[in-house]
Every structure is written in structure tokens, then in C-alpha cells.
Design a protein around this nucleic acid. Structure first.
Lengths: 221, 221
DNA sequence: ATTTAAAATGACTTGGTAGTCACATTCGTT
DNA sequence: AACGAATGTGACTACCAAGTCATTTTAAAT
């Protein structure tokens, strides 16, 4: 299915449609998201959206690529930069993630859902793909750091990468929990997913980094 | 809705029904799980299941309580025991979780789904409840350990509790990832969720614990 | 103004769901 | 055996979903 017809649309209409789709898929998982509801809200015919994207599944893929592209744009420079101090770099990765959320709350909310999507029959495969990519990237960075002697050699990179991955996907849950934020409500109202100050973010990052760096155990004096 | 009629059934039939329900809800999330499919597989009338449990939602709640009860049974002694060495205790908590899985793979697989359920309108509330309970338990243990001087005082218990919670719910994902296990396939075939040796489990626990205990940073010699 | 191609439309099909309820069957008690 | 209560049944309702497609509308080209 080509999205030729869609791209012939006036850019403004394209954006309206995209926004509404993101909203629907940010508020519901794949299965519960309804194309019928999207077209009703947009006031366009049902046939149109299928003309533009072919099927619900292809629409979903389109949105993943679209949001992924935006995310890449924001974090590209950061990902390419040399890693001097690993933990400082790691903090930066986080804060970029949070900046992306502040800039594109809808895409961020959508990706939050994608990562947690568990609809095996239909779309689990895309999710696994993107997970593997992120995972392997983390692994490669950690291996490099281990070679440089920055990381203990008696723990498996696998386990470590997993902790990082978990922390990475879990940071939003943590913020939601601590600051009692209701993502869905904010998405509904077109607000940013959460409102935290730069300070609060840094505090959080310092804590997480410190735990991972030196452990939680009280040092003997 | 009372489950009186259900409990009047021969125990064997009760168990058959419960097993099939767990299977359905372990293989699908709340929304995609189908009562129609359950009754078809059981070869009983649709009306019966509604007579037993009232509604899909109440059936779901019943299953949560049922599996939760079983889990409690397995881990009760462990949870009540004095915490001598925290990290050893923590390892025990994990291994009990894994033992529960080996003993009751179906319930374990079901609870895996419950924790990840994101169907806000219907059942998210139960999930939040159980999450808060686990979370607060972890927090209380950590606070106690901090008072005993076993844990650094310069990191927030909140953040730490979150890492533990994440690790707790994530350990199955990790095992699935590392050992390339397909939970769903195993559930379908009535097998345990995964087959790992005691050794492999201990290795894993040692790694995770070690990272959390002393951090990932290479110590200066 | 006419022709033609592209785009928009929404009633319709197909297939799924949870839940209902009038009726049939079974079971325990007198 | 007869009665009455408890239990089992499955066709049925009401609903909503994705996707289709003959028809209409719009826009562009001649």
C-alpha cells in the first residue's frame, strides 16, 4: 500500500489526520484503538483513511516510523557524540528522552504504548524489532565501556543491558508514580505528558545513576 | 454476584473451568480474552459461566484473587521471616517467585499479564491496587534496612523501590530474552513458562544482586 | 464547456464480542 | 412417583469493529 494519495493532501490536513491518529493510538492499545472513532472525530469518510494507509496495521506501522523519525531527529547528535564519561553520557540520554517528551508529548505517549504493546498476532513483531535494536545499542555501548575498563568485568553485559533497558522504559512510569501524573488525561487535553522542572529531572537522574554506578549498599568507613 | 453456584459444582469441574479461564487470560489481555472462546473449549453453555461469575470483569477479579492466593501460599513463610542479610533475602524473594512459576505456570503467566494490563476503562484499577501494595511493601523493607544502616542514606527510597519493582516484574522478560523462551507457546502446550536450571537462576540472581549492591563501576585498585 | 482522472463518501458486509432469558434438564426431598 | 428448586442451555439481542466498493464529488486538463 502506498501513501501517495495521503501525501497529495494539503499539509495541514495531513497533520490534522496524523495528530488524531496519534491521539487515538496514544490513548488506546492497538486492538482498542478504533479507526471508526478516528474518522468520526476528523469528520472524514471511513474509506478515506483506508485509501491513505491501506489498513489499520499499516497505519500503525506508519505512525511508528513517523514518531521514530522524530525521536531520531531529536537524539541524533547526542547518539553520535563520543562517550567521555559514561555516566554523564547516560544522564544525557535520559534527559534527551525527556526533552523529546516535552517537545512531542503525543508521539512520546504513542511510543510509550508501542513499547508496551502485547498484541501478539498483529503487531508484536514490530515491537520486538525495536526492542532488540535499542537493546543491542545499549549492549554495544556497555561492551565498549567495559573494554575501556570503566565497568566491572565480573557481571554479564546482558544483565546490565537489561537493567538499563528496563530503567529506560520505566522512567516514565516512575515519574507518573512519584508525581501522580495521569498520562491519558494529559493526552486527552492535549497537554504535555507531565510537567516536571529541569531540577526535578536532574535530581532523578542523579539518583538513578548513582545507584547503578556505586550500588545501594552503605560503604564501610 | 455470588459464586455460590460455581462452588456447588464438583471440584473437578470447577478446576477444569478455572484452568481454561486462566489459559485464556494468560494467552490474551483482558479485552482480547473471550468468554465465548472459553465456553466453546469447555463445551459448556455460555449462560453457565455468567451464572457462575456474573460478568467477564468479575471473572477476571476472581482469577486475580485466586492466583494471588496461591502466590501468597507459596511465599508466605518467606515474607514473614526475619531479614538477616538483605541481599540474601532479596535473592530468596526472587527464587520464590521463580518457584511459584515452576509450580503454577498458568497462574504465573496469568499474573504476568495482569501486571502489564493497561485496559484503563475496565480493569486498570485492580492492577494499580496490586502494584501499590507490592511497591509499598518493598518501600517498607528498604526503609527498615536503611534505618539499620545497610543502605545508603543519600538516595531516595522511592527511586530504589522503583528499581526493585521494575527488576521484580522484569525478571521474566529477562529470562525470556536470554533463553529465547516463548511464554505463550508454553502456555498453549501446558508446559512450564520456562525451563531453567537452579544454577542458571542462581547465576542470574547473583548478577542482579551484585549490580544493585555494589554498582556496575569498576573499583579503583 | 467537456472530458477524464483522482479523491471522497458512507451504506453495507462480515465477523467478532458480552450478556440475556425463556425453556429444558437434572437433582434432592417429600 | 411427583413436586419444586437449582442448574444447564444456546439462540438471541445489541453493539462495535475493520474493511469494501459503487457511486458521487472535486479538480485538472483539454
Amino acid at each position: 500500500m502506498s501513501t501517495k494519495t495521503f501525501y497529495n493532501l494539503p499539509v495541514q490536513k495531513q497533520n490534522r489526520i496524523i495528530e488524531e491518529c496519534f491521539k487515538e493510538f496514544a490513548l488506546h492499545d492497538y486492538q482498542q484503538a478504533s479507526v471508526t472513532r478516528i474518522v468520526k472525530k476528523l469528520g472524514i469518510a471511513k474509506g478515506s483513511i483506508f485509501q491513505y494507509f491501506g489498513s489499520k496495521k499499516e497505519l500503525y506501522k506508519f505512525l511508528i516510523n513517523y514518531a521514530g523519525q522524530k525521536k531520531l531527529e531529536v537524539s541524533k547528535k547526542m547518539l553520535e557524540s563520543e562517550i567521555d564519561d559514561f555516566f554523564e553520557w547516560y544522564k544525557k540520554v535520559y534527559s534527551y528522552g525527556i526533552k523529546f517528551d516535552l517537545k512531542y508529548p503525543l508521539y512520546s505517549g504513542f511510543l510509550y504504548n508501542v513499547v508496551r504493546e502485547r498484541n501478539y498476532e498483529d503487531v508484536e513483531a514490530f515491537r520486538i524489532d525495536s526492542k532488540t535494536q535499542v537493546f543491542e545499542f545499549i549492549e554495544s555501548v556497555l561492551k565498549e565501556q567495559q573494554l575501556k575498563g570503566k565497568i566491572r568485568t565480573d557481571i554479564s553485559i546482558n544483565a546490565l543491558a537489561f537493567i538499563f533497558y528496563q530503567a529506560h522504559t520505566g522512567v516514565f512510569d516512575y515519574l507518573a508514580y512519584v508525581h501522580k501524573v495521569d498520562f491519558r488525561e494529559n493526552i486527552k487535553q492535549g497537554k504535555p505528558l507531565f510537567s516536571v522542572t529541569e531540577e526535578q529531572i536532574n535530581e532523578l537522574l542523579d539518583e538513578f545513576t548513582s545507584i547503578l554506578k556505586s550500588g545501594m549498599q552503605k560503604q564501610q568507613q
